[in-house]
Nucleic acid binder design. Sequence first.
DNA 1: CGAAATACGTCAGCCTTGTTGACATGACTG
DNA 2: CAGTCATGTCAACAAGGCTGACGTATTTCG
Lengths: 170, 170
Amino acid sequence: MASDTTAPAGRSLLFLTDDQLRKGIEAMFFAYRGFTADPDRILAEKNYGRAHHRAIHFIHRSPGTTVNNLLSILGVTKQSLNRVLRTLIADGLVSSTVGARDRRERHLHLTPEGAALERSLSDAQRERMRAAYRAAGPAAVAGFREVLEAMMDDDMRRQYQAMVDQPDGR
Amino acid sequence: MASDTTAPAGRSLLFLTDDQLRKGIEAMFFAYRGFTADPDRILAEKNYGRAHHRAIHFIHRSPGTTVNNLLSILGVTKQSLNRVLRTLIADGLVSSTVGARDRRERHLHLTPEGAALERSLSDAQRERMRAAYRAAGPAAVAGFREVLEAMMDDDMRRQYQAMVDQPDGR
DNA sequence: CGAAATACGTCAGCCTTGTTGACATGACTG
DNA sequence: CAGTCATGTCAACAAGGCTGACGTATTTCG
């Protein structure tokens, strides 16, 4: 690497050493493990995986969303998503209803049972996030969000922004 | 849950609404995708996966580390790690040498080829991190690290702290 | 010394979750 | 009506987790 030593201006050169960057990388690695640990425990008991969690989360997030929409949010193939969706529907956690305007589409909703599982998953995850936010304080949280957003790919960030700016209507 | 919503008191409480927490959760989700995207592209060309990346990263990080040590850092089973390690050794990216003090142990090092791959992977990841850090600024970066550290499990945080505080000697 | 514990490797089998490719159906659209 | 679109599904495969069971050095401890 060894770039910043020669590079001009910028706001602060010293805080962008490879060592600082490596610490950020390792922090992401370990923090993500913590981030998924609580839901993973709950899901394991019910024989579901992270893929089910993601589907449930975004169906809860955007009730009535279509399969195609979910596909583009999750960034997986339809075969992969369908496998997960099939089990969730079979288990009565998700309902799939034919679209009124366009009858090719299926609109996805959580059933009461699905909503209950979503609740318990997101409670666990929120609890950890809340504790982290409390420990770090509001200023740190703002910085946290800024860096994370800057880390996304452009098209991902667009999806994220669009999603984040609409309240969840719980 | 529904805790902070009942008493909409001060500003310090409002920043911990479920909605704020959800935004943080979704930011983690999308940011982690970005975080792994660049290395994933490089690895895919060489028919390696994220598991190889993690092994390479931490062997680079702690040259001469033992298999058991790596196991506890990565948090996987020895069978799982061994599969990855076997291919890396067979492909000449990692060397395994019998321990001098304790001949049961194997000490792992990157070969020159392994170090080259590590370099190209971490260059890509650091480049993204650098861009995010630049965009967000030093104060945001400090907050970012604070929140991530608060998000880890206690024993994970201990490992992280111990690791982060020793320079990597590159 | 001998028994137990430790570090490592490996075989076999299973699961989840991702992939491609192919194909069918029903529904909208020009 | 022809073409495209949204969806579902079958089959086959790969990565990378897991458990359980063994085998083999080697070290440690009673």
